[in-house]
Amino acid sequence: MSCGCSTSRGADPDPTRIVPRILSVAGGAAPCLAINGDGTAVRDYVHIDDAAAAFVAAMTHLPDPGGCRRYNIGSERGTSVAELVAAAARMTGRRIPVEHRPAAPEPPQLVSNSDRAHRELHWKATTSDIDTILRDGWAARTNSAG
């Protein structure tokens, strides 16, 4: 899932995404983070800058201007919700209280295989580690609040 933001683009305004929700709690704008289940669901988070670079690579490298291809893009690293919350608490130095709600019927793990994008587009995620995503999101949130 695409997430994060760059400080030049501002904070992610979508309150339904987990990274803005976590950072909202860390920033004191929300009392706690509600999550489904025990926090063990694993997802692949891709920085918005990497997603944008993948789009540019697709526009640049596609051989047929009218053609259509599908690519999976991602960090190819899985991070659980609990790991994401712990990383945000460590990075911000703030406590992030969590409220566990009933588990939702969802796959336990979704991680991208971006081999085709690597091979055909010469694209690889370079800023999609969790610490960078959180650091950039926190900086954008802090800059837009002040």
Rank of each mutant, 00 (worst) to 15 (best):
H100Q: 09
N113D: 15
G37Y: 01
D64R: 08
P102V: 03
A140G: 11
Q109C: 12
S112K: 02
I73S: 02
C68F: 13
T79I: 11
D115Q: 12
V98W: 04
V25T: 11
R101S: 01
R90K: 09
N36D: 15
G28E: 09
G146W: 03
D131G: 12
P15S: 14
V98M: 00
C68S: 14
R43N: 07
I133Y: 00
L110E: 11
P107R: 06
F55Q: 13
A86E: 11
A139N: 14
E120L: 15
Q109I: 05
R77D: 04
V25Y: 05
D14N: 15
H118T: 03
L23F: 08
W123S: 04
R141I: 12
T92R: 01
P31C: 05
G10T: 06
A117D: 03
A139R: 14
K124L: 14
G4W: 02
I73T: 04
L62S: 11
G93L: 01
I130P: 13
D14C: 07
R141P: 07
S80W: 01
R95I: 11
W138I: 09
Y71H: 11
A54E: 00
T126P: 06
V56G: 02
R90I: 01
T132N: 13
R116Y: 00
A29T: 13
S144P: 01
V85Y: 06
A58T: 13
S112Y: 07
R21V: 04
V111I: 05
A57R: 00
R17P: 02
R69A: 14
D115M: 12
P15D: 13
D64E: 10
F55Y: 15
P15L: 13
H118C: 09
R135H: 13
R116A: 15
C5V: 11
I96H: 03
H118W: 02
M1S: 10
V85P: 05
A29W: 04
R21Y: 05
H100F: 02
M91K: 13
A41G: 12
H122Y: 06
D12E: 08
T79G: 05
R90Q: 08
L121T: 04
Y71L: 06
G27M: 09
A51G: 11
P107M: 07
E99N: 07
R95S: 14
